[in-house]
Structures are given as C-alpha cells and as structure tokens.
C-alpha cells in the first residue's frame, strides 16, 4: 500500500507543478539546495580513497573507448554529448 501512496503523492505533485510553475521552481531549488547540503555529510576521508583511486572507478575509465563510441553514436543517432561535450567535429554519415 505504501508504494501506491508514494505514487499517488508523486502524481498529485506533478499535477500541482503544472498549475504553479513559479512554486515548482522554488521547490526544485529547495530540493537541489537540500541535496547539496546533504552532500556535505557524504563522502570519505582522504585515507579512505583506496577503491575510488582505482582506474576502473574513474567516471570515464577508458577515455579512448569513450571517444571512439562518441564518434560512432554521433554519426549514427540523433543524440550526442551529455557526459561530455556533444560538439560538432565531423560530417560523418
């Protein structure tokens, strides 16, 4: 029952968004600020970075693969970028 309530709350929230756009922006801002301040509790001490320092934990662990993939999908699909710049750069077909 609980998930249903959550869903209903979400739905009514969405509806109110459409009705009160400025309010929505304020709420969004509040949520973002709340998240940012919550973030100050997150994280690790410098000596706890053993795993995060590993290459496979880098957000882009293989920049070469990422560059090659970006080029392929830029040429074959209507979307590009998002993770990094979408850019121009080729007249690829």
């Amino acid at each position: 029952m609980k998930p249903l309530n959550v869903l209903l709350n979400k739905l009514s929230f969405t509806k109110s968004l459409q009705l009160h756009r400025p309010k929505f922006k304020l709420t969004l801002l509040a949520v973002v600020i709340a998240n940012l301040s919550a973030c100050s509790n997150l994280g690790v001490e410098p000596w706890e970075r053993d795993l995060l320092a590993k290459k496979e934990m880098a957000l882009t662990s293989s920049p070469i693969d990422a560059a090659l993939d970006d080029h392929i999908y830029f040429s074959k699909e209507a979307s590009s970028g998002g993770k990094s710049f979408g850019g121009g750069g080729c007249g690829c077909n």
């Binding site: 997150l42 994280g43 053993d50 795993l51 995060l52 990094s84 710049f85």
Partner: peptide, 12 residues
C-alpha cells in the same frame, strides 16, 4: 555547448 556538472563521492 554549455555543460554543467556535479560529481559526488557517496562513500568508499
């Protein structure tokens, strides 16, 4: 292009 990003370490 304009890109704005936020990265957060959650835990170890």
């Amino acid at each position: 292009d304009i890109l704005v990003g936020f990265t957060q370490v959650i835990n170890r």
